[in-house]
Amino acid sequence: MKALSIKQPWATLIAHGIKDIENRTWRTKFRGRIYIHAPAKTAIYQFTDSQTDVLHSTPTIFRNNCDDHVFSAIIGEVDIVDCVLNHTSVWAEQMAYDVCPETGMHILRKGQPYVWNWVLANPLLYDKPIENVKGALSFWEYAKFKGVPSL
């Protein structure tokens, strides 16, 4: 099965079902189940006010402390169900656009890098992560072995 390395804390938020979007600069046509891999390094991040509101309203306890996160491990699974621009989720990075006065259509501004919002669903957080797994860029294959839950 394919795996995707996602830096912490984003990987944990996705596996808990809190974060429903993964933002990437490249588009994917892949749809289906992937492993969520938390690499050795953490992301530099800051939550927006809307994201903080979501975190406070979820029943899942999420600590904003990277010491509590698992690193260099496959921590769960999720489905990629779509890949769009400017999704309405609080986790989606937005691209700037103008509105055509004649048609009302949204027109992306020229010169900005694309940010694709991968829409995620059906997350599964493993009770016991698969530890000591080195990741890779883009999608990569991880061979199943004993101890990996089957769905």
Results as ranks from 00 to 15, higher is better:
Gln8Phe: 01
Lys134Arg: 15
Asp53Met: 05
Val78Thr: 10
Ala43Asn: 03
Met105Ser: 12
His87Arg: 09
Trp116Leu: 01
Ser50Met: 05
His87Pro: 00
Leu108Cys: 00
Ser50Glu: 15
Pro123Leu: 03
Val115Gln: 04
Thr52Gln: 12
Ala73Arg: 04
Leu125Glu: 04
Asp79Phe: 07
Gln112Ile: 05
Ala73Glu: 13
Thr48Arg: 05
Lys144Trp: 10
Arg27Asp: 12
Thr58Gly: 01
Lys2Cys: 07
Ala11Trp: 05
Asn64Lys: 14
Pro39Cys: 10
Gly76Lys: 01
Ala143Val: 13
Gly17Ile: 08
Asp82Trp: 06
Glu22His: 08
Pro9Ser: 12
Lys19Arg: 09
Glu22Lys: 11
Gly135Thr: 02
Ala136Glu: 14
Asp68Thr: 13
Ile21Phe: 04
Thr88Ala: 09
Asn117Pro: 06
Asp79Ile: 08
Asp98Met: 03
Asn122Arg: 13
Ala143Phe: 02
Ile75Cys: 09
Tyr35Thr: 03
Asp67Leu: 14
Glu102Phe: 06
Leu124Arg: 15
Trp118Phe: 08
Lys110Asp: 14
Thr12Arg: 14
Val78Lys: 06
Ala92Asn: 03
Leu125Cys: 04
Val70Asn: 09
Gln112Asn: 05
Phe145Met: 07
Ile18Gly: 00
Pro129Leu: 06
Ala38Cys: 10
Gln112Pro: 02
Ala38Phe: 10
Glu77Thr: 14
Asn132Tyr: 10
Gly135Arg: 07
Arg33Val: 05
Thr52Ile: 14
Leu4Asp: 06
Asp67Cys: 03
Ile14Pro: 06
Cys100Tyr: 01
Leu85Lys: 14
Leu4Tyr: 09
Val84Thr: 15
Ala121Asp: 14
Asp127Asn: 12
Leu120Ser: 03
Lys19Trp: 01
Asp79Leu: 08
Ile61Phe: 12
Tyr45Gln: 01
Ala73Ser: 15
Lys128Gln: 15
Gln112His: 05
Tyr114His: 14
Asn122Gly: 02
Arg24Ile: 09
Pro113Ala: 04
Lys134Gly: 08
Ile130Asp: 05
Leu125Gln: 11
Thr88Gly: 12
Val148Ser: 14
Gly32Trp: 03
Glu102Ser: 09
Asp127Glu: 15
Thr28Phe: 09
Gln8Cys: 03
Trp140Ala: 12
Thr103Asp: 09
Cys100Met: 07
Cys100Trp: 00
His87Leu: 00
Tyr126Phe: 15
Asn86Gln: 04
Asn64Trp: 00
Tyr114Val: 10
Ile18Arg: 01
Thr42Gly: 11
Gln112Phe: 08
Phe145Val: 06
Thr12Gln: 14
Lys7Phe: 04
Leu55Ala: 03
Leu13Gln: 02
Thr48His: 00
Phe145Asp: 13
Thr25Arg: 14
Gln94Val: 00
Arg27Gln: 13
